[in-house]
Design a protein around this nucleic acid. Structure first.
Lengths: 346, 346
DNA sequence: TTGTAAGCGTTATCAG
DNA sequence: CTGATAACGCTTACAA
């Protein structure tokens, strides 16, 4: 991708809507631009009560709003925060983005979303670098689309990392490890000795899913069980049945299946029922997400629930800390972030 | 909410990472800043082949990226596009935002998300106005959070409206009318003469749902049927059963229920089954969304499907037109945007 | 074909 | 306590 963007040329040349500037405020208040700037930035420490009031009134009267461009230019950084969204079907991305955007909004920042669009490896980083260099954002919030190395690169370019840097173990961050572990242990607890992992067949590739499959394999090894099979499940009944059928033929019954999310888990569950396999006797299914859908249907889905608010809390705290000047947030993921929701499928 | 944002003050004063500027490029290429600017903006019409090449090489060599701040300042407008997201549980917001962000990215724009956070009426507009005045964005894309009046206000402030202005009929835009109509007509076609509308109980209020309930009422009137009841359904089995139970007691059976989305439809469907009501004989259910989940379970959900790509297409075309200089997009929603997905619940 | 110079709106520094 | 002044990086008439 080149830098040139001819598209912008097509925009109307100069729809310049004036809008009051600090100079107008200064004139109206009978002071200088610098005084206006100081007052409006709350550096009122040593200004006469009266001047402050005059400036504020003038600003209000003119509906003065400082220009982000001017600010950014002189500060060398904008009030934008880039939100890097991974190329995965995350549960509840809307809620996550909304919660974070809301916090940042309160802090006076606007959120620029940056989606990982897949493509060549490193491609995402390149695009992100370009955005960072262009916008010089106040910071970056990563929802999991960046590796530690990539984060390093961005930070070394002078971009503050607002989100907590998750601890990676062999390429898997602690959140995914915790989820996959709980899934595997839960299945084993419920008596399954043959395990499998169900990935989502999707146009986008699913690094999280693959990581978690690896973790399930680790747990199996720990417990002395055979390595889990991995199956790819489409979100459509016939395909799901085919995939499950194949698994049952290969591994026999009973089998406990950890799924990459609740939708996949539903696909597997109803595929099993359609194949006349008993759930949970022959086929155990545990999902991830704990969203409402899995709890609405019969049989109710067993799943690993996590509260969006909780899981975003660390990010939000980090933001409040870095930008809002809040106290250093407590580290680590709370123990109860991921809980087993016992349904009827295990 | 006041304008002042003391939070920003807490940021490190000047983490100034220089980064090459156009002056550096000019020096290296042995030309002036203006030449660099012209060349890099593809105004190469009358520059010597050699100069152009030298400038480009120099820029590449230095990894030069123009500063958005500088650009915006002089142009009076930034390369940002504000995306206004409504305060509703839209289906697939992630996909919608991603598709639009992707298009805009290709056009050289970054997307700033702005969520309607509810609150006092007009509050959203105020916040949006502030953002628009501060950022002076290249345009605004509305996903449905703004009324025609509010759009007018924003446009009169010099903010270009990139998304198509949907035709509103008595406060309901044509998309929602089409959806609700299809739901109602479908239920009637399938033989239900008593209709109801199921709203989602949610922390956020659901204007779309209420609009669609009104449309269903209109259709009932047209067909000479009794006015539909409206029920509020929580996404949780017990509550859903309570709501449905009450409806059955009031309206008897059979009853056809149009739901505000597929999740609600699932809740209603499984609530009916739990109440030992026959689906679709006693209770007919039709959802909206057509997402995979409804098609995974048994009974398969009857629903009004719409392709995200299709439904965003008009927005994308409008963007391509306004910013990318693409040809005027064909008007109107394609007839097949909303299709009845015949499942087993009607 | 290329360079010069004048802003765009803000903030920081320093002098009064 | 307040006000000049000088950047910040870029675009664009206009001059050469």
């Amino acid at each position: 991708m080149t830098i040139e963007s001819e598209g912008l040329a097509a925009l109307p040349p100069q729809p310049r809507r004036p809008g009051a500037t600090s100079v107008d405020v200064a004139r109206l208040a009978g002071v200088s631009r610098s005084t206006v700037s100081h007052v409006l930035n709350n550096q009122v420490t040593r200004f006469s009560e009266e001047t402050v009031e005059r400036v504020r009134q003038a600003a209000a009267q003119l509906g003065y709003v400082p220009s982000a461009a001017g600010r950014s230019l002189v500060l060398g950084r904008s009030d934008l925060v880039v939100l890097a969204v991974p190329n995965t079907t995350l549960t509840n991305v809307q809620d996550i983005i909304e919660a974070i955007a809301s916090d940042l909004d309160d802090l006076g920042c606007s959120v620029v979303v940056h989606f990982d669009r897949g493509g060549a490896p490193g491609d995402n980083l390149t695009r992100l670098q370009h955005v960072v260099e262009t916008l010089r954002p106040a910071g970056l919030v990563d929802l999991g689309s960046l590796s530690p190395d990539e984060l390093d690169v961005l930070e070394s370019q002078g971009c503050a990392l607002l989100s907590p840097r998750s601890q990676h173990v062999r390429g898997v961050d602690e959140g995914n490890v915790a989820i996959a572990r709980r899934q595997a242990v839960h299945l084993i607890d419920r008596g399954y000795t043959t395990l499998a992992f169900a990935l989502l067949v999707d146009q986008r590739d699913d690094p999280f899913g693959r990581m978690r499959a690896a973790v399930v394999a680790d747990v199996c090894a720990e417990y002395g069980l055979a390595a889990p099979s991995t199956i790819s499940v489409p979100l459509e009944p016939a395909g799901a049945q085919t995939a499950l059928c194949e698994l049952l033929r290969t591994r026999g019954r009973p089998v406990g299946i950890a799924c990459s999310n609740d939708e996949v888990a539903l696909a597997v569950t109803f595929a099993a029922l359609a194949l006349r396999a008993a759930v949970p006797a022959d086929v155990g299914v545990v999902g991830v997400g704990g969203g409402s859908v899995g709890q609405l249907v019969t049989p109710r889905l067993s799943t690993i629930g996590f509260d969006v608010r909780t899981s975003v809390a660390s990010v939000r705290q980090a933001i409040a800390h870095r930008i809002g000047g809040a106290p250093e947030p407590a580290a680590a993921i709370p123990v109860d972030t991921f809980t087993v929701v016992q349904g009827e499928t295990t």
